[in-house]
Design a protein around this nucleic acid. Sequence first.
DNA 1: GAAATTATCGCAAAAGTGATGCCAAAAATT
DNA 2: AATTTTTGGCATCACTTTTGCGATAATTTC
Lengths: 226, 226
Amino acid sequence: MNKKDIKILLVDDEPDILEIVGYNLTSEGYQVITAENGQEGVKKAKKELPHLIILDVMMPEMDGIEACELIRKHPDLQNTLVVFLTARGEDYSQVAGFDAGADDYITKPIKPKVLVSKVKALLRRFKDEEAADMVKLGSLTINRDEYKITSKGKEIILPRKEFELLSLLASKPGKVFKRDEILDTVWGNEVVVGGRTIDVHIRKLREKIGDDSFKTIKGVGYKFVD
Amino acid sequence: MNKKDIKILLVDDEPDILEIVGYNLTSEGYQVITAENGQEGVKKAKKELPHLIILDVMMPEMDGIEACELIRKHPDLQNTLVVFLTARGEDYSQVAGFDAGADDYITKPIKPKVLVSKVKALLRRFKDEEAADMVKLGSLTINRDEYKITSKGKEIILPRKEFELLSLLASKPGKVFKRDEILDTVWGNEVVVGGRTIDVHIRKLREKIGDDSFKTIKGVGYKFVD
DNA sequence: GAAATTATCGCAAAAGTGATGCCAAAAATT
DNA sequence: AATTTTTGGCATCACTTTTGCGATAATTTC
């Protein structure tokens, strides 16, 4: 899953917090949705089905704990990650928070780096659980975990982009990936690179993996065949 | 001392707790003795001289605090580790518990992993406990308890960070650990350190263990190979 | 259907970027 | 005081991207 496809819901009654946290997550490339109170938070959670929810514990009317409990009841949000924002010293809420189904908590005052790294760590865990890490395709084995590729017994270490490009193409052998799709996935649509970039990488792969594994569909894109 | 020679006394009036905790500790290889109330607990403690006692605070008649005080009076049980089991929120008992001579406490509901790791951590303090977790990987032996590493017969003593870094990398030989992951695990995500820190440590390890054991995957991270 | 035109791709070399290694020195631990 | 850990500054190297041009396929025109 691409970073830009990850939705984070931010629920806090303080606009300041909303802004600073929102800013940091957005600039990391995540999609951020905000809500200013518990009710709205729960509503948006159900509607948007975010991957991660950051909930302030202390909020007027419906507090984070209650909101979390409601969120957890929704079938589609069972596995959503929930992080609590709590003031230091409110240790009771931490405990209760875990009880309510929180996955982690962050204490205020918020340090952006800590925040971002926690979010990353959580999402990584989430990702790991979801995705099987090895893909086998005939003579090719792609091992995301070890970042290496085995082709006909030989072990090949590929640089990042080449590795990701191959991963993508090989994930659905035979399928033609349009240039746009490839750019979106491997480079991310924020980065704008020239049109020749893709074929340069394809060429590198052809050199390393085998010339005939990659077919060009002119005007469309490329596909990987076994 | 061998794990199987370590006796743990479990005192709780709820059979359920006795069973679940007992099961977890037994399957870790410890010898578990149980008692269903304070009196019986104190009696068994004196008779069996366990290495660690897990005491429920809330018990009819004689509560955990009282039991602990009695236990501590026995000359042969001065150094025995005592852990309290307390329901969340009973924070008073925690304080009183430490007063009474507890070494740690665990809150209910009990999470087996937390329990086991606390028990391990406490027992580790016993000097005479022999290498509980040793990991062998080809030419490397990692001795978690003594922060020591044996490589090709040579014994190497590593500083903490280096040791932890090596432990992490060696825990899954071949797996590539991303810089982020390494930071999270070795440094903890609260601490924010600069980017050069990791490679300096890697360099130290390369000097000490062997240059070719550590491979760099540029743009991703490092991996350990045997 | 053949030739001309145009778009797209392959390739190689060059330029650019960013990550890593290494050092030395400052901080922090012990 | 000695050791360990972190930092910052370079130098370097590896990878990535750009660029330019020729080749090839697709499309249009005759």
